[in-house]
């Protein structure tokens, strides 16, 4: 009964990449099948453009911040704001998978927790990057010089940033059993994360204590590296490109490792029957 011949040869493939691909594809199919989600994801960057372009654009055009005009300053932050929401809220699907039972069969499959985390995070990352790409397509409208190469490099950067943000959502969502709880926690988290990332105002003008918080916020480096790539700058008031890039990559690696950790972590025995969710997963 044991047919070994068509199992993929390496356990790395079988335990990580195959399951990850399976979970990722499922996420994308679900997304494209639910029209309302598609409208939301594709529509929101366009809506942002419409309002920013017609409102903020004219009132702030003459103001300067950090050497560029405000609209230009605001652009990378808006890009990441859109991605931040999509990336993090996509991880709600973990709570839904748990409630709807889909996660049960994932948890008894002979796969590694690294595969589960990779598949789910890649799903949210894809949606976030898709949004980011749509938003970026409008960049030339405010006079940002865009080439194909630059677009591709930016997308790669956005993949890493999106992975980190989705992973952050995963870390929080894995332990949650209600979507309401997730919304509450995320709102507490998301707004400060974005406000203090240099998206809205540069750290240079901020008081010392705020500057320290901003420098500890990983999103700050996502914003600054995106800004530097967009405007071909070598440094940003907050940091250098290389340093930002290192932080962005390190954050993505950190949340991925953290996600694997929370999946593996065995819960303390509860008083009643534990939900399947709290079951231990393969090391």
């Amino acid at each position: 009964m044991n047919l070994k011949k068509n199992e993929s040869p390496h356990s790395l493939w079988r335990e990580i990449f195959f399951p990850a691909y399976s979970l990722w594809m499922r996420e994308l199919i679900r997304f494209f099948r639910q029209r309302s989600r598609m409208i939301g994801v594709i529509g929101s960057p366009i809506l942002f453009w419409f309002f920013i372009g017609s409102g903020l654009g004219t009132s702030f055009r003459s103001n300067t911040a950090g050497g560029t005009n405000y609209l230009e300053y605001f652009f990378p932050g808006t890009l990441l704001l859109i991605m931040l929401f999509t990336a993090i809220f996509s991880t709600i699907s973990i709570i839904e998978d748990r409630q709807e039972g889909y996660l049960q069969s994932v948890l008894v499959a002979p796969i590694s927790s690294g595969g589960i985390a990779l598949g789910k995070i890649a799903g949210g990352t894809s949606l976030a990057v898709l949004q980011g790409a749509i938003f970026l397509l409008f960049a030339p409208l405010i006079g940002i010089h865009m080439t194909v190469l630059k677009f591709v490099v930016l997308l790669i950067l956005l993949v890493v940033i999106g992975f980190g943000l989705t992973g952050l959502g995963f870390l929080i969502a894995w332990r949650m059993d209600s979507t309401q709880g997730f919304h509450a926690i995320m709102n507490l988290f998301l707004i400060p994360l974005w406000l203090l990332s240099g998206s809205l105002f540069p750290s240079t003008g901020a008081p010392q204590w705020l500057r320290i918080i901003m420098s500890l916020n990983p999103l700050t480096y996502g914003v600054s590296s995106t800004r530097m790539l967009l405007y071909d700058l070598e440094w940003d008031p907050s940091s250098s490109f290389l340093f930002s890039l290192i932080i962005v990559v390190a954050f993505a690696v950190f949340v991925y490792a953290g996600s694997i950790f929370v999946i593996r972590k065995k819960s303390s025995p509860p008083k009643t029957d534990p939900p399947l969710a709290e079951a231990a997963v393969l090391p």
Partner: peptide, 29 residues
């Protein structure tokens, strides 16, 4: 393993459900 509560993805087709399940077990093609 067949669970008491449903474990199928309602939004996917029967075949897609089975396909993704098979991939979790390293099956393909």
């Amino acid at each position: 393993v067949v669970f008491q509560s449903p474990s199928l993805d309602q939004k996917l087709t029967v075949k897609e459900n089975l396909h993704f399940q098979g991939m979790l077990y390293g099956l393909y093609g």
